[in-house]
Write a protein that binds this DNA or RNA. Structure first.
Length: 578
DNA sequence: GCCGTTTTCGGCCCGACTGTTTTCAGTCG
């Protein structure tokens, strides 16, 4: 199997880390980091590009040198340069960077003075009290390292967005409860709606920063104050997540919100545009010389560098700046565009609520339709339905729909559907006769995640060969932070879906969000439409749609790219297969 | 190492906080 983009990126990331510790030129290090950041976001595999003889230097941030190295990696699976650097700088030193509190300079100093080459070495040096004797280190640094080593549980894990929402809500209330707050926003990757957040960034506009910072560090869920100044403070909450507060005067609100929302690469790109125009952009504003020419609103910052407003979800430096320049930013899908949900369970399988309760909850959201997609018999743990029970459910839905039509004056109905298990050989878990009686069929994999890539890919494509199948649900099977996606050639799957008139699901469950943002973008580029579905197992689960919308927006999807932005009649036309 | 409506050489985003220092380097976002 050919090498994946993210494996190539990992090689450059490691080179960047090790060169930095070695003390190499900072801009050279940055060049490797830029390449490592860009590569996983490419739609097409680099291996394929190399095989096709494409000129890689046409990609941004890839020049002659890195292009050659990519070719070597693709052809041989390894890079001699990395092996050389590893001989000079032990790769275990990277652990020290991940620990936090230590950067390349001090890691280098520790290594040269004390021979520290790993976390274990550092622990010994700290316990022996040798660290504080080094120039540039002191008692406090040593104590802080001791603390971090004691807490160390491997590279820091990111927090799922939905947990971050729950953590930040009471903290925001706490801050708003204090005097003098003129404006407040949760910025960072939270505002960009990334599926997970590393830390939380809270921005406040007010005239007395010190008072807000004081109130912030006094929040009762704070476990540790990491830093505490008059305009900036950082804490670690008991949950383990770090929260950074930044306070600015109202006149800087827009510039600060832009700066604090990120992403870092987007900010760098915008600031670079500023420099080209003789402007300096900081969190305080946009300056020409001493004079502030913009910064009260985010819009004014973009205007100053000749760009239209770019929504937070797109700010990843993945082409949004170029698209803005061309006037080609997409009109992104919103929650208001969604007309129904195409994946939901009831207490007939592993859901918690009845058919009627789910229907009323969906109608209350203003939807026109809700597809009931209980599991099928192979999924015994979920009490999956066999053909007989599904036939009974079909009859029950028909009866309920009559009542719903009266109650909601024809504005809402349930769709008869199923989430059909794809068996190991790609066949379906229910006979065609019963499938033909449904409005909609969602198919998905729930076992044998371990098949090799070509077999898993064939399995899914074979399932879509069945002309009853409409949507492939949670297409990679990943669970955020818990289970890697199974090996599957997603691009082949997308092309196969397109040829067959099938669609892929963006599953909005907070632990799934499967497809990823990048996969959504890839689908859009191929012309494949997506269903954003909650896979709700209860009434409350239907409200998770907002997470799917965030992911879809990050994937550049417009309402037109999303099949459940259609009214029922148009949806039915889309679902019709040849 | 990348890149180019000032440039193929000489730039490369910007500021706050901490700790170790007496003016600043390192780290972080």
């Amino acid at each position: 199997m050919s090498i994946q983009n993210r494996e190539i990126a990992a090689i450059f990331e490691e080179i960047a880390d090790l060169l930095e510790i070695e003390g190499a030129d900072a801009f050279r290090v940055r060049a490797y980091r830029e390449a490592a950041r860009l590569i996983p976001g490419l739609a097409e595999g680099l291996a394929e590009r190399v095989a096709n003889g494409a000129d890689l230097t046409e990609l941004p941030s890839i020049g002659e040198a890195i292009a050659k190295k990519i070719a070597v990696i693709v052809e041989t699976g390894r890079l001699p340069q990395l092996e050389e650097v590893r001989r000079r700088v032990p790769p275990s030193l990277r652990e020290l960077l991940q620990l936090g509190g230590l950067g390349p300079k001090r890691v280098k100093a520790l290594r040269e003075a004390l021979g520290v080459a790993s976390l274990a070495d550092l622990r010994q040096a700290v316990e022996a009290g040798k660290v504080h004797e080094l120039p540039g280190f002191g008692e406090k640094t040593e104590a802080q390292l001791r603390e971090r080593l004691a807490r160390w549980q491997g590279p820091s894990s990111r927090t799922p967005l939905i947990e971050a929402e729950e953590l930040v809500r009471p903290l925001v209330e706490h801050l708003r409860g204090g005097p003098g707050i003129l404006d407040l926003a949760v910025a960072g990757s939270f505002r960009r709606r990334r599926e997970t957040v590393g830390d939380l960034d809270i921005l406040v506009a007010c005239d007395d920063g010190a008072a807000v910072a004081e109130r912030f560090v006094g929040y009762d869920a704070v476990a540790e104050v990491l830093s505490h100044g008059e305009t900036r403070a950082s804490v670690r909450l008991r949950s383990g997540i770090q929260v950074d507060l930044r306070v600015v005067p109202p006149v800087s609100w827009g510039a600060a919100l832009h700066y604090f929302t990120g992403s870092q690469s987007h900010n760098v790109a915008v600031r670079r545009r500023g420099v080209e125009r003789g402007l300096k952009i900081s969190e305080y504003g946009v300056y020409r010389g001493e004079e502030a020419i913009a910064g009260r609103t985010e819009e004014s910052v973009y205007t100053a560098v000749g760009l239209p407003f770019i929504v937070p979800e797109l700010r990843e430096d993945r082409g949004e700046i170029e698209a803005g320049e061309r006037g080609a930013l997409p009109d992104l899908v919103t929650l208001d565009d969604i007309r129904g949900d195409l994946h939901a369970h009831t207490d007939a399988s592993d859901g918690h609520d009845s058919l009627a309760a789910m229907a009323e909850a969906a109608a209350a959201l203003g939807y026109e339709y809700l597809a009931i997609t209980d599991h099928t018999k192979h999924l015994g743990v979920a009490h999956g339905l066999d053909a007989k029970r599904l036939a009974a459910q079909i009859a029950a839905i028909d009866r309920l729909n009559e009542r719903l039509a009266k109650r909601h004056e024809g504005r809402f109905q349930l769709l008869k559907a199923s989430e059909i298990d794809i068996l190991e050989d790609g066949s379906l878990d229910l006979p065609d006769e019963i499938l033909a009686r449904l409005d909609l069929r969602v198919a998905s994999i729930h076992h044998r995640f371990d098949l090799p890539e070509h077999r898993q890919t064939e399995r899914v494509i074979r399932a879509m060969d069945n002309r009853h199948v409409n949507i492939l649900a949670h297409p990679t099977g990943r669970l955020i932070g818990a289970r890697e996606p199974y090996a599957i050639d997603l691009e082949r799957v997308m092309r196969a879906a397109l040829e067959r008139g099938c669609f892929l699901e963006l599953n909005a469950q907070p632990s799934r969000l499967d497809l990823t943002d990048l996969a959504c973008q890839q689908a859009k580029e191929l012309g494949l439409k997506v269903a954003i579905s909650t896979d709700a197992h209860s009434r409350a689960g239907l409200e998770r749609m907002r997470l799917g919308i965030g992911q879809a927006r990050r994937g550049w999807l417009s309402a037109d790219d999303v099949i459940n932005s259609r009214g029922l009649a148009a949806l039915r036309r889309l679902l019709r297969r040849a």
